[in-house]
């Protein structure tokens, strides 16, 4: 018996998928609002993408081409594990090319290549509640969202400014969606925040352990919280990629020897490889996408 016959298409049973699908649709109808859903125990641990996996499972059709990334890379072990899971249980095609993918599941990054209509970006979310570290109680934060009472968040950002002269949040940077809900974009670097709003793709967020699904429909306004005199800035390492020379991509810093030498490379491996294949070579790069 193959895995595809031992389990339902894309693993989850139909009743579970219906429940998740209804939650996704309500999430789409109320952008930025966290819809509670009866998250299931998945065959991978909570905290390892169970929310994203459940959302992807509910969305996949047999014709999809799936891309899975972790930290921007297709070859990180957890991305490999999740991609394999769907190959085995849904028999779908997989790809590493952002432009070719119809569904992309991601942890911690938005791909550099702009997304298009017809694509779905599924985020794995550890803590969906943007107010959680300011107020640990769900009963309280739910009330704050209801009353649109985001004063606590502004106080926190303001305290940052008075202490550090700037907002000291580098990732997981909250956004306000369509002027209503403050939303946690998952732990993407704030460099990626500008891609959240006005995106042509459907963006779905799944938090399995915390039992929440939320969404940004295409072309939805998502504004990073800031102050008039301290505007939001998307930041990255002040370098170009050493492999492909890209001046504008998010970079990983790699320590190359025990003397503390380091180099900077694109975190988005598909983006970097495509550039090199197209002839863009950085100071330490080679033309082959493999290396």
């Amino acid at each position: 018996m193959t895995d595809q016959t031992a389990y339902n298409f894309a693993y989850l049973d139909e009743q579970t998928k219906r429940m998740i699908r209804r939650a996704i649709l309500k999430g789409v109808a109320i952008p930025g609002y966290q819809v509670p859903f009866a998250s299931r125990e998945m065959p991978m641990p909570y905290g390892w993408g169970t929310g994203g996996v459940q959302v992807t499972s509910a969305c996949l059709v047999p014709e999809d081409r799936l891309k899975v990334i972790d930290q921007g890379a297709d070859d990180t072990t957890n991305a490999v594990s999740i991609r394999r899971f769907f190959q085995r249980t849904a028999g779908i095609e997989v790809t590493e090319a952002t432009a070719d993918a119809t569904v992309i599941q991601t942890r911690h990054r938005i791909p550099e290549t702009p997304l298009t209509e017809g694509q779905i970006l599924v985020y794995q979310v550890p803590i969906p509640e943007p107010l959680r570290f300011l107020e640990p109680r769900e009963t309280e934060t739910r009330k704050m969202h209801e009353l649109e009472d985001y004063g606590l968040m502004h106080v926190k950002l303001y305290e940052d400014i008075s202490r550090h002269g700037q907002i000291a949040t580098a990732y997981d940077y909250p956004v306000k969606v369509e002027g209503r809900y403050v939303m946690d974009p998952s732990p993407i670097p704030k460099f990626d925040n500008p891609k959240l709003g006005g995106n042509a793709a459907i963006q779905l967020f799944g938090a399995g352990r915390e039992q929440r699904i939320y969404a940004l429909p295409p072309y939805t306004q998502a504004i990073s919280l800031d102050f008039d005199d301290y505007p939001f800035t998307a930041s990255k390492a002040d370098h170009a990629c050493d492999l492909c020379g890209a001046p504008d991509s998010y970079l990983d810093e790699v320590i190359t020897d025990d003397q503390g030498s380091r180099m900077f490379v694109c975190s988005d491996t598909d983006f970097c490889g495509s550039r090199r294949a197209a002839g863009h070579i950085g100071p330490m790069g080679t033309p082959s996408a493999g290396g």
């Binding site: 996949l60 047999p62 429909p217």
Partner: peptide, 19 residues
């Protein structure tokens, strides 16, 4: 073929609600 037909139908329903 409920698993596949409902999956395709949901994608249409999702795109419709999202756009």
């Amino acid at each position: 073929d409920a698993p596949r037909q409902s999956a395709r139908a949901f994608r249409a329903a999702l795109e419709a609600m999202a756009r």
